[in-house]
């Protein structure tokens, strides 16, 4: 890439970052009574964790979706197509089901999250590396198996909740249907630590992403240990999705939208820029969306509805305008 393109992309990213900052500031300060310190402190106490949770979610989903697309070598897939969201929901339900809602694992938010993420990491590594090996990295088969698994996990989860004690189910529900108005803010610190650890742990693999998109044969030709790298990156993707799902519940189209917006805006192969763009777009969509939901629609329409409707339309647009899928 020539230098002017790199610089113009840097400017675009800066602009995005400024927009995110403006949105974040607006989210914190709109309609806050600045005269009374007590009211101000109260508003901050409510809004800050929500804002942080949204930023974390955006980073996790944006990064994970973009990495996932590059690993699969297809730009209209998202990790939820492989059933990662449903797997997380299933694991969370299963933990409560088998240990009971009164157990220490279920009542302690951070412990419950840690156990879920651990199980998710193990289960996903086994399931997904098996799928990839079995299908020889054939995207179509992987997606097909993934779609089947999504409903499979979903059915098991439904079955578990149906045979569950109604009281247990009631407690489960409050943590299960996390959403943007009911953000699971207790696990923020743990999530940040976890995401930081993932990025640090995978820094070498992330640097290989540019080469991975040349395809398996070329990546191996250029000296990449392909299978190991893919395995590690997929584990990272899974954990990021687990964090996001635990924090705000499943949002299917977000990853697709922001990863593709980033690709469209930056038109580059450089993943350092693409991932950043994707995360920033995610923050913009989530914080901006929530801002509108809270102050224009006064909570009448949840932000996930906008994302799903907008995402659906954008998905159709991508399908129709692309020559090749």
């Amino acid at each position: 890439m020539n230098l002017t393109a790199v610089r113009s992309n840097r400017n675009k990213l800066m602009l995005l970052a400024v927009l995110v900052l403006l949105c974040a500031a607006a989210y914190l300060l709109v309609e806050v009574n600045l005269d009374s310190p007590k009211l101000f402190a109260y508003a901050m106490k409510i809004r800050t964790p929500k804002l942080i949770a949204m930023l974390i979610t955006a980073f996790a989903i944006g990064g994970a979706s973009l990495v996932f697309q590059s690993v699969i070598n297809n730009t209209i897939v998202t990790p939820c197509l492989l059933g990662m969201n449903s797997l997380y929901t299933l694991i969370h339900t299963a933990v409560v089901f088998f240990l009971g809602s009164g157990s220490i694992v279920a009542t302690h938010a951070n412990l419950s999250f840690a156990v879920d993420v651990l199980l998710m990491g193990i289960a996903a590594t086994i399931i997904y590396s098996w799928i990839f090996q079995k299908t020889n990295h054939n995207v179509l088969y992987v997606l097909l198996v993934g779609t089947v698994l999504t409903s499979f996990f979903g059915s098991i989860q439904t079955t578990l909740t149906r045979v569950m004690d109604p009281n247990e189910y009631d407690t489960l529900l409050s943590t299960l249907v996390a959403s943007f108005s009911n953000i699971n803010s207790e696990i923020i610190l743990l999530s940040v630590v976890l995401l930081g650890a993932i990025v640090w742990f995978l820094r070498k693999d992330l640097a290989l992403l540019d080469v991975l998109t040349l395809g398996k044969a070329q990546a191996i030709n250029l000296g990449v240990d392909y299978d190991r790298c893919i395995r590690r990156l997929l584990l990272g993707v899974t954990l990021c999705i687990a964090v996001a799902t635990a924090m705000v519940g499943p949002i299917s189209f977000l990853g697709l939208i922001i990863a593709n917006l980033s690709r469209q805006l930056l038109k580059t192969y450089r993943h350092s820029q693409l991932v950043l763009g994707s995360a920033l777009f995610g923050m913009l969509v989530l914080v901006g969306g929530q801002l509108i939901v809270e102050h224009v629609y006064t909570y009448a329409v949840p932000v996930s509805v906008f994302i799903t409707v907008g995402g659906g339309l954008y998905f159709l647009y991508l399908l129709l305008t692309r020559k090749k899928v």
């Binding site: 070598n73 730009t75 998109t213 070329q218």
Partner: peptide
């Protein structure tokens, strides 16, 4: 190595 499967999406 140069193979025939050069489907580069980027």
């Amino acid at each position: 190595i140069l193979t025939q499967s050069n489907n580069i999406q980027m």
